[in-house]
Computed example of a mutant assay.
Amino acid sequence: MMVKKIENKTSLVWKMAIASAVSWEVAKLVGSEHPYLAPLSVILCLQTTIDKSIRFSLHRIVGTAIGIILTAYLVSHLHMNGWILGLLMLGGTCIAKWLRLDETVLHQVALTILLVFTFERNSKDYAMDRIIDTMIGVIIAILVHMFFFPPDYTKKAAESFQKLAHQLSDILLELSKWVQSEWRQGKGDLVEYKMNNLLQELHTTKEMLQTASQSLKFNPISKKHKIILSRYQIQMQKMNAGYEYISNIVKTLKEWEKEGILSSSDKTELGNDLKMFSEFFDDFKGIQQGEINNWKQNEQNMLVESLRSKMLLYPPPSHKVYKVSFFLETIKLLENL
Rank of each mutant, 00 (worst) to 15 (best):
Q235G: 01
S263Y: 04
Q185S: 11
L313R: 05
H145T: 15
L229M: 04
L216W: 07
V105N: 09
G86W: 00
E291R: 12
S215F: 01
V109H: 00
T211L: 10
S20F: 01
Q162L: 07
T268A: 13
R130H: 10
T48D: 12
D170P: 00
S53C: 02
M2C: 02
F327V: 02
E182V: 05
T154L: 06
H79Q: 08
H34K: 05
P220M: 05
M135H: 03
K206G: 09
W83Y: 13
V304M: 06
Q108H: 11
Q167W: 02
R121I: 13
L58V: 11
M302Q: 12
M236F: 08
E182L: 09
S11F: 08
K332G: 03
L114W: 04
G63R: 10
N8L: 11
N197F: 05
K52N: 11
E120S: 10
Q214V: 08
S53P: 09
D133H: 15
Q300I: 00
S215P: 00
V144K: 01
K206F: 05
F284Y: 13
A158T: 15
V304R: 00
E103T: 12
D282Q: 12
E257N: 08
E7Y: 10
E335D: 15
I228D: 02
E25H: 08
I61F: 10
G31L: 06
M146P: 04
F148N: 07
L312Q: 06
K320R: 06
L270A: 11
I61N: 10
G92L: 01
N336E: 14
T134G: 06
N196M: 09
W256T: 06
I84G: 03
I140Y: 00
G31W: 02
F280R: 00
K155R: 13
R121G: 13
S213Q: 14
M239W: 01
